[in-house]
Amino acid sequence: MSDGAGVPDAVRKKRPAQVTGAPPPGVVTGPLPAPRPQGGRSPFRVPRPRRRMPVPRPAPARRRRRWPIGGIAIGLFFLGLFAVGMGLGVSSGFDLNLFGGPDEPPPRAFPVLEPSRPERLTIPELKIDAPILDVGLAADGTVDVPPLKKHNEVGWFDGGPTPGQFGPALFVGHADTRTGPSVFHDLGRLKPKQTIEVRRADGTTAVFEVNSVEHYDKDRLPVNRVYGDFSRPSLRLMTCGGKWLGGDRGYADNVVVYASLISSRQS
């Protein structure tokens, strides 16, 4: 709102940016390990055809080739030598890994960061560069928001992962107050492929790419989708939007930004 004239009572009562919906019990529980493998059929398994296929005639048997005894002996010699070398490496602590670099983690399709508290959130496209404070759950069980005197700061839900860990790190912010626009006023303008950066206490900056920006009726927030995806490191930005309903109801919608971690760098 641009001034105090005609402001609904709910705004005067400092309740303009209520974010409804909270993580279901046991879903968001702080720093989390890597997710367990999902059950079900492997996506790479090719099902057998149902119809009966013609059975090909067997090819005529070929005479077995005899392997030279000398070649077999040489192969066994080198195999034994390799085994002895590996045993010496284990007993002496010397690294004889011939198939991978020393101390290199297994390759991932995406980065994963160690836990570290977020300190600052930057969205270049929206010209947002805001400090981050911790928020928890409000008395009614919904995710709390920063106090109105800090309406230009972003709240990180400290009951969930830190940005860069497996799972959705949740950030909330006000859209506006009785004095004017707030930190997430233009959040709905974000587009897929745009970036969000989070500076962390360990000196790294986690870089996320926007996947989608969605609007939900507050009574129909898809809780499991917002809070329950631990398949990779991700980000959720939430604020209020949609139609002003007035009274104690505030805004009709929640604006939710979905983003995934794509890289990190030293700040």
Rank of each mutant, 00 (worst) to 15 (best):
G87K: 04
P106M: 14
V143Y: 00
R62D: 07
P58T: 06
A109D: 14
L113T: 04
F77V: 08
R51P: 00
L133I: 15
V84N: 09
L76K: 08
L98F: 09
I128M: 03
E119Y: 12
P105R: 12
E104T: 05
M86P: 02
P54T: 09
D103H: 13
P118D: 07
G70I: 03
G70D: 05
G70Y: 05
E104N: 08
I128F: 05
P106R: 15
F78H: 14
P124T: 05
F110L: 07
G101H: 15
R117W: 06
G70M: 08
L88H: 08
F110I: 04
A130Y: 04
R117D: 09
P111F: 05
I132S: 04
A61S: 13
R52H: 01
P107M: 10
P102F: 08
V55F: 10
K127T: 11
E125V: 08
L98H: 02
R117K: 07
N97R: 14
A130M: 04
P131H: 11
P118Q: 09
G101L: 15
F78M: 14
M86A: 14
G70C: 05
P105Y: 14
R57E: 14
P105M: 11
R66E: 09
R108Q: 08
G87P: 04
D140L: 12
V135D: 01
L121F: 08
T142Y: 07
P106V: 15
I123F: 01
E125D: 14
P106C: 10
R65D: 05
T142R: 10
R120L: 02
E114D: 12
P54W: 02
P54F: 06
F77N: 05
A73I: 06
F78L: 15
A61Q: 12
R64W: 06
S92I: 08
A138E: 06
L79G: 07
E114L: 07
V135W: 00
V135S: 00
A83N: 09
G80E: 02
L121S: 06
P107S: 11
E125A: 14
P111I: 03
G75A: 15
R62M: 13
L137Q: 10
A73V: 07
I74W: 15
F99I: 14
E119D: 08
V112R: 04
A139I: 08
G71F: 15
K127M: 11
G75Y: 12
T122H: 07
P106H: 13
G141S: 12
G85K: 09
M86I: 12
A138M: 02
P105Q: 11
L76R: 05
G89Y: 13
R62G: 03
K127V: 08
V143E: 01
S92V: 02
I132G: 01
L137R: 13
L88I: 15
L79D: 06
G70H: 04
P146D: 01
G75E: 10
D129H: 05
P58I: 13
R120M: 03
E114N: 02
G136A: 15
S92H: 13
I69W: 01
L126R: 01
G93Q: 10
A59D: 12
E114A: 02
L81P: 02
F94R: 11
G87Y: 09
P68V: 00
